[in-house]
Simulated assay, not measured.
Amino acid sequence: MTLATLAEVLQPAMAGGYAVAGLVTLGWEDMRAFVAAAEAEECPVILQAGPSCRAHTPLPVLGKMFRHLAESARVPVVGHLDHGYTVDECKEALDAGFTSLMFDGSRKPLADNIAETRAIAEMAHGAGISCEGEIGFVGYADGESSAGTDPEEAALFARETSVDAMAISVGNVHLQQDKQGGLDEGRIAAIQALTDVPLVIHGGSGVPVDQRRRLARTSNICKFNIGTELRMAFGDALRAAVNADPDRFDRVAILKETHDPMVAATRRVLAALKG
C-alpha cells in the first residue's frame, strides 16, 4: 500500500523544490486516470473529494475508492477531504479512511477560523493524519470575490493552528477556465518570509503553466489544486466518445474511452510540477 498523509508528500516537496498536484475527483473514471498518470510520471498524487463530489458520492464510498487505488499504486496516494466546512464532515472523512482533512473556515472571522481549524488539526493529528487550512478567501469565477491573504495574519494562523499546509489567496480563483491571470508573487514572498508551512494554491487551473512550474521550484508552494482544467478534458473526451457512435448506449464502453485522454491531460499537469 502507498497510502500517504499530506505531510508525508508535502514536506519532501518543499525540501526538494517541487510541488504535488491536488486533483479534484468527481468519480471513478477520473480518479483512476489520475493515479495511472502519477504512476507514469513517477510522482505522488493527492486525490481530493470536494463538495460537489461528496454531494454525488457518500464519503465512506469515496474513502474506500481512494484506499483501493492506493493499495495497488506504485506511488504515494493521499486521500484528501477538500473544503470540509464542519467538524462532523471532517470526522466522517477521518472515519472513512481519508489521510488528510482540509477545513475551510476562510469565510469566518480570523479568531473563529483559527480556533476551529486548530480543533480539526488536533483531531487529525491525534489520528495520525494531516490537516490543511485556509487563510484569506479564494473566490470563484463569476461568483464570490476573493479577499487576499494578509501575511501577518497568515503567520498567526500557521503558528496557532499547527496545520500541515496552508491555502492562501494571492490572485487565484476557483473554477477559472482560462489562464489569463497570474499569482501575486510579491504577496507570496511576503507570506513565505513569515511562515515555514507548505503553501497551497486553490484554483490552480487558472494559473499559467509556466508560473506553476517556476513557483513549484522556487517557493514554498508545494500543492496546486487542479480541478476545472481536468474536468474540461474529461468533458471533451466524453463528448468525443458519445459522438463517435450516437447509437451506442452502454456507458461502460463509452466511459472507457475517456481513460487515455484523461491520463494524457493529467500527465501534462503533473510534469509541470515535478522537480
Score class of each variant (00 low, 15 high):
L3F: 00
A4T: 04
L6Y: 03
A15Y: 00
A19M: 07
V24S: 15
V24I: 11
V24P: 08
V24G: 15
E29F: 06
E29A: 10
M31S: 13
F34R: 07
F34D: 06
A36M: 12
A37F: 09
A38T: 02
E42F: 03
L47M: 01
R54K: 03
H56T: 10
F66L: 07
A70H: 02
E71I: 12
S72V: 11
A73Q: 05
V75H: 06
P76A: 02
V78P: 07
L81T: 00
T86F: 03
T99A: 05
S100H: 06
K108I: 11
L110I: 12
D112F: 03
I114C: 07
T117V: 04
A124W: 06
A127E: 08
A127G: 06
G128F: 00
I129V: 15
G136F: 09
S146C: 14
A147M: 15
D150A: 09
A158W: 06
D164V: 00
H174F: 04
H174Q: 10
L183P: 01
I191M: 08
I191G: 09
D196W: 06
D210W: 05
R214V: 00
L215R: 01
R217G: 13
R217S: 14
I226M: 02
I226Q: 13
G227E: 09
N243R: 12
D245C: 09
L255W: 02
K256A: 15
K256R: 15
T258H: 01
A264D: 12
R267M: 14
R267K: 12
R268Q: 15
G275Y: 05
